[in-house]
Design a binder for these strands. Structure first.
Lengths: 342, 342
DNA sequence: CTGAAAGCGCTAACAG
DNA sequence: CTGTTAGCGCTTTCAG
């Protein structure tokens, strides 16, 4: 296990001082001949500079930290892809941690990122980490909160989210245009039984949109699932509730992309046909949606990732709150659209 | 932008030396009363230790590096999930970089990981990076190559791969059991027109398996695609070739999970029905495979990720070469199985 | 049990 | 253009 060469070793074999080596490595003014000798020594010793040590001078590393609650959602994959591309274009690496959807892990991971002195932090965590991210932002580490907004953010603390109300309204409009009138909603919650504000906002938007068209969305028409295996029960409760209240359920909207597969197969397992028996509408575009004919409300996740990373790189001083519009990608899972019916 | 507290600040406000602070933080022998004062100072100053500085003593960081060529493949997502879980269980973070499937980026990213003094490195890169990973391994940074084996690895250099020949044979057996006899193969290559050895091995396995059953797999029955948009052309060439050679194509096997969606929709776009017109078999399990009835040859990607991370954590001194078996997940995309026909 | 002092590998003035 | 001299924030002997 050969010892690693240090800048001192390079300096010694090149017959110069460490300062000179540092200069040729980082582009200072050095005589061509000297530089050549140094490069030669670098090559011969296979010297690889220690980025860690460099960082302690810069005050922070060149890495962008990302804390994600759950990799399973198609939303996050594209988000990461967007972040990664911007990072690569800026000689940054991405340091990644997932929280397995547990609140206590969220604060541990954010803390770990802070200890690593990341150049900036992008998180999809809940309020529990706000204390630390605020402090980080105040301390000069730009932080970007994804899918949530924060009250009174300090300088350096930004947020990127979807216009969830608009997304909900979009769903309502589409469903009504497809002639549906009795809709059930599926939302997810984390292990601490907290449903994410984004999903409740979408539900609120849906409720507004429905109300504008004279349709109700009673509390009982909203079911919650924590894991994929809960989804079946949630769907059953939806079916039962609406049956009790008279009109049979004719549409289900899944408020999180993470549960799309589970919801879709739960429906299939119950012999329910899409869209004949029930219309199916879900969040987040995914690779097979077109093939399956599933209509989705898409977030521009890739773009959101890029923007997040750009905020980290560009470090605007004023807090930036970016809100993106959702797009309806209409396919066949909600049945025929009867436009101009209103 | 408040300055960050250093260990010196903590020492000063607690009225002790930095050595003592270091001791209470890292669990040395300190009087309870002193420790209490230190913790108090830590809390009051919101002191967050600098992991970077710590690492320069350890000689390396506590981060596991991962270099992936392409996030789009379902294989990699699960691999990362496995790595991430082991990392989390070992107080490690995961540093991630993707190469966008370009060889030059591969060496740049591996180099970057080396500069970051990662605790260990997990890569899916090609031979171009072997020089560096060998040196890293010799220098004491465990390196794990995924989906490829290396000749004569030094101590600390490991590999994790699939038994690609067996995977190919599995495909042959299944296809023949389903009564198919004229199969076409789709493989992918990177931007430098290199097809990955794993895929050519799978093809070889398929060829063997077919030959054992008296069926040929001519060179022309293997088509290559670089990007998703090439897939249509590749499929067309397969269709054309086999038509020329007499027997109409009755099966297509896609040797990479990355192109599954593209291949599947290319078939649909040409009005080809699965499995009636053509059997469809692909690599890597994915969320919608069951719903779509697509038969796949699955790699234990999650487990492979875990093992890779475990090799980094446990640093065995002898080179470890792990080869995993592929599993056939039979669904309906190859038609009816006529077992016992042989 | 605790402090002083010497570094880890590198950069950043400041002279020369 | 280049070497010397301080550090960066932290750990780690080695005395006391």
């Amino acid at each position: 296990m050969a010892k690693r060469a240090t800048i001192g070793d390079v300096a010694a074999t090149a017959g110069v001082s460490t300062a000179t080596v540092s200069r040729v490595l980082n582009g200072g003014t050095v005589a061509a001949a000297t530089a050549a000798r140094v490069w030669d020594a670098v090559a011969r010793l296979e010297y690889t500079p220690n980025a860690l040590t460099k960082s302690i001078f810069a005050g922070h590393s060149s890495t962008i930290g990302v804390v994600i609650d759950d990799l399973s959602s198609p939303f996050y994959l594209d988000l990461i892809r967007g972040i990664d591309e911007v990072a690569a274009a800026n000689d940054s690496l991405v340091m990644f941690a997932s929280t397995f959807r547990q609140a206590d892990r969220e604060v541990a991971q954010v803390r770990a990122m802070d200890e690593q002195r990341v150049r900036g932090l992008i998180v999809t965590t809940g309020e529990a980490t706000d204390g630390r991210t605020r402090r980080m932002a105040e301390g000069g580490t730009p932080c970007v909160i994804i899918a949530r907004t924060v009250e009174d953010p300090p300088s350096g603390m930004h947020s990127i989210s979807l216009d969830n109300l608009q997304a909900g309204r979009l769903a309502a409009a589409h469903l009504v245009e497809c002639g549906r009138s009795s809709v059930g909603v599926l939302i997810s919650q984390n292990r601490s039984s907290q449903s994410r504000p984004s999903q409740t906002e979408r539900t609120a938007g849906l409720r507004h949109g429905l109300a504008e068209r004279g349709l109700p969305l009673p509390e009982g028409a909203v079911a919650t699932a924590t894991t994929e295996s809960d989804v079946g029960d949630a769907i059953d409760s939806l079916l039962a509730h609406v049956r009790d209240s008279g009109k049979p359920l004719d549409a289900i909207v899944c408020m999180t992309g993470r549960l799309t597969v589970a919801a879709h197969s739960a429906l299939a397992a119950r012999g329910i046909t899409i869209p004949d028996d029930i219309a199916f509408l879900t969040m987040d575009e995914f690779a097979w949606a077109a093939t399956l004919g599933i209509t989705v409300i898409a977030q521009p996740s890739y773009l959101m990732g890029r923007r997040a990373a750009e905020l980290v790189v560009e470090r605007p001083t004023t807090p930036v709150q970016l809100v993106f519009e959702a797009t309806l990608l209409a396919r066949t899972s909600c049945g025929e659209q009867h436009t101009g019916l209103r």
